[in-house]
Design a binder for these strands. Structure first.
Lengths: 199, 199
DNA sequence: CGATGGTGTGAACGCGCATTCACATTGTTT
DNA sequence: AAACAATGTGAATGCGCGTTCACACCATCG
């Protein structure tokens, strides 16, 4: 029965990934040490060898999310020189990310978050702000290249972009996948582009 | 200690309102029968005289939310003949609603929701769809009056509008009220209007 | 006036779950 | 090889909380 011993760093990674998977597939309510341990192949109490407690695990998950969001921005920035095109690609990536990880949305609003230490809220805000700032950079770039209207604050545009994706994602997973995300985001993007494009 | 006896219908109303208040102020995690009973002025077990269980209470809260959302649309439709103006007013009202009831956003994503019976998800979807349909009517009206571009599906515009408000609301309450919702929504509305206005 | 049904009370039960602890095992250092 | 630190195990603990139940009160009806 005994699992092979592993370095703490490896275990921490495994545990965070497992937790994110649980949240993604079954919601934050289903996130308990028993389940996490089960996936990693450990006994519940073993989790405490690598994390101070469940709260710390959640923190680790948030870091994981931060990384993935950043990676998305980096990817689209690398894929395209045109900032507008990059934003468009980011919309696709972001919606895919949200759909594949239902639980990410729920994590942000989760009770586990708001009941947790005050710090938690601040941390989530930080993660989102990180992401927003990366997006803002793209937007500013677009403005400097005269592709995006200059009469809107880049940060405001970034927030709008987030909203563009968020609602469809919510509806998609409330509808068990029946809501037409693709169609919705396509139309929304068209309208959005018209709103921000310099012309 | 004994509370005065009250009709079940009155109690149900009181309980639902109390629950919404708790969710709004302290999140869904804080929603427990003890607290609800405390606000209403009853003993926990008394709740079960009026509801089958906690799940039923949550359902009642959802109905409350549905009512309030509908009331908002009705109000702005009455306030203004111009659909575009009405939409603008609705944005204000909706953001106010979300800010005054932090927990409404969290309720939608809540564990309590997703862990509950399958029906729950369907119900929430229904509440949002109700709201979306009311908004869609406004939009269609605007299109018929040639005020809103006809090349966008009214339903898609409604979803966009929701997203316009949702993100700022999230950021606002993650930031403990520091995020500039007003500034954000003003800019977002300007851009949004430009995107949908017929010109 | 007695019966019946609706409402409120307090105590108790039971479950899920985070956390702890004593002990076993393995890997590394001296 | 001996000692020690790191990791894994199984059992036990304790808490929060939804729910149930037996009992008390009070209004209304026959």
């Amino acid at each position: 029965m005994a699992s092979e011993k592993q370095n703490t760093e490896i275990r921490q990674e495994q545990i965070a990934v497992a937790a994110l998977r649980i949240i993604g597939q079954h919601g934050t309510r289903a996130l308990n040490v028993v389940r996490i341990a089960g996936i990693v192949g450990l006994v519940p109490s073993a989790i405490y060898r690598h994390f101070g407690g469940k709260d710390d695990v959640i923190d680790a998950v948030l870091e994981l999310v931060r990384k993935r969001l950043r990676a998305n921005v980096a990817a689209v920035a690398a894929e395209s020189r045109d900032p507008l095109e990059a934003l468009r690609l980011l919309v696709d990536r972001h919606i895919t990310f949200l759909c594949e990880n239902d639980g990410v949305s729920t994590l942000i609003f989760s009770d586990q978050v708001y009941s947790g230490p005050k710090k938690r809220k601040v941390k989530i805000y930080g993660v989102i702000n990180d992401y927003l700032q990366e997006i803002t950079k793209l937007v500013r770039d677009g403005q400097e290249k005269q592709l995006i209207r200059g009469d809107l604050e880049p940060a405001a545009i970034a927030v709008m972009l987030l909203g563009l994706v968020q609602s469809p994602a919510i509806l998609w997973h409330l509808s068990e996948g029946n809501f037409g995300v693709k169609r919705q985001t396509e139309q929304a993007w068209r309208a959005f582009e018209r709103a921000i494009r310099n012309s």
